[in-house]
Design a protein around this nucleic acid. Structure first.
Lengths: 195, 195
DNA sequence: ACCAGTCTATCTGCGCATCGATAGGTTGTC
DNA sequence: GACAACCTATCGATGCGCAGATAGACTGGT
């Protein structure tokens, strides 16, 4: 087979694994679960990811890379801090559309002590990427007069991120109330967002 | 052994199990882990909790009851909405002291689809207990002029709870930054909390 | 004698992981 | 351009240990 097909299979395994992680957690799916879904044998998955930890690492690394790409796209498409933040919120909350899936940060944080150091490091990187970006948007937005709040912009950035992660957990428990507004009230309160 | 000792053993099993759940998740500990810690055999644990699900249910039911007791204590000890909220926040954030342990809500939400209906129902009850109480405190605090915010008090209550759950996930990933203020900046922003 | 509580022994099934085999593509070299 | 040597991707079989769970025997208090 061609190398391109190899890559496709690797990606396919990660795709399915990511679905399992986001719905059930990293410790609650097996190579057998993956194999059944993909219609191959578990031994074939071991060929690409010798240890489950290798799969976990590949998973979160791709997730981080995708996320970085997504926020770079936002920066390219939108100039206003308000629109950039809106786009970010939409992306984040769409992730948990209907409460089916969680952000990997939430899942891996819940299981953190059972995960390898390499994966824990990636979780930290994901957080920092998000906070740095939010900090930019929030402080730019304040300078431009879109938002007003007291204190450090980094505290606001951190609050937004924590809120979003917690909100995903809540939405999963109450999937019915999925018809929520574009901008959660909490965000308006945190930023004194007008309009 | 005396019935009182029976009860003691049951509680002891729940104690140890709760520790495991809060640190590693419900799917990442076994009856063997419990048995080793408690210095009994796994069969003895099955005597009290025939299925792991029975243990999980007992666990969260006790947790909910404890929590309800704790907020009733707060209401008895404090009259000012400000002090009541402070006490609640302290209780909540002390729970994750150093990031070692998570609130059961966060853990069970992360693993939700792998849990039984009975446990999922308890998770919902826990959420509603908290939101109802926070709603009371927040709306009383607004009437009394301690807090000021626009919109529904229930949205603020919900935002506080989501923030706290998310904040616990974040703190677990960054245990170093444990020297945080009594009232998180996010809460001050949400409520326009003065003083 | 009874009963609660604990034990030992054991079951079945699944967890991750490895091995060796095989079918087919790729490459090198004469 | 043919053949050997190698590489890629997959497989079946299997190992070892742990998972939750149960049956049945022991023990000590009343």
């Amino acid at each position: 087979m061609l190398p391109s097909e190899t890559k496709a299979m690797k990606e396919r395994i990660i795709d399915v694994a990511q679905g399992f992680v986001q719905t059930r957690g990293f410790n609650a799916f097996s190579y057998r679960d993956l194999a059944e879904q993909i219609l191959i044998r578990t031994a074939s998955i071991h060929y690409y990811f010798p240890k489950k930890d290798d799969l976990g690492l590949a998973l979160i690394q791709r997730y981080c890379a995708d996320f970085e790409g997504a926020i770079r796209n936002i920066d390219d498409a939108e100039r206003s801090p308000k629109n950039r933040l809106s786009a970010y919120l939409k992306m984040f909350l769409d992730l948990s559309k209907g409460g089916a899936r969680l952000c990997l940060f939430a899942v891996f944080s819940a299981e953190l002590p059972t995960l390898s150091e390499r994966i824990q490091d990636e979780v930290r990187i994901f957080y920092e990427t998000n906070i740095d970006w939010l900090n930019d948007v929030v402080s730019e937005g304040r300078s431009a007069g879109f938002f007003s709040f007291s204190g450090e912009s980094r505290d606001v950035a951190s609050a937004i991120f924590s809120f979003l992660e917690g909100e995903m957990l809540v939405r999963r428990v109450f999937p019915a109330e999925a018809h929520s507004p574009e901008i959660p009230p909490a965000i308006r309160l945190l930023l004194s967002w007008k309009g």
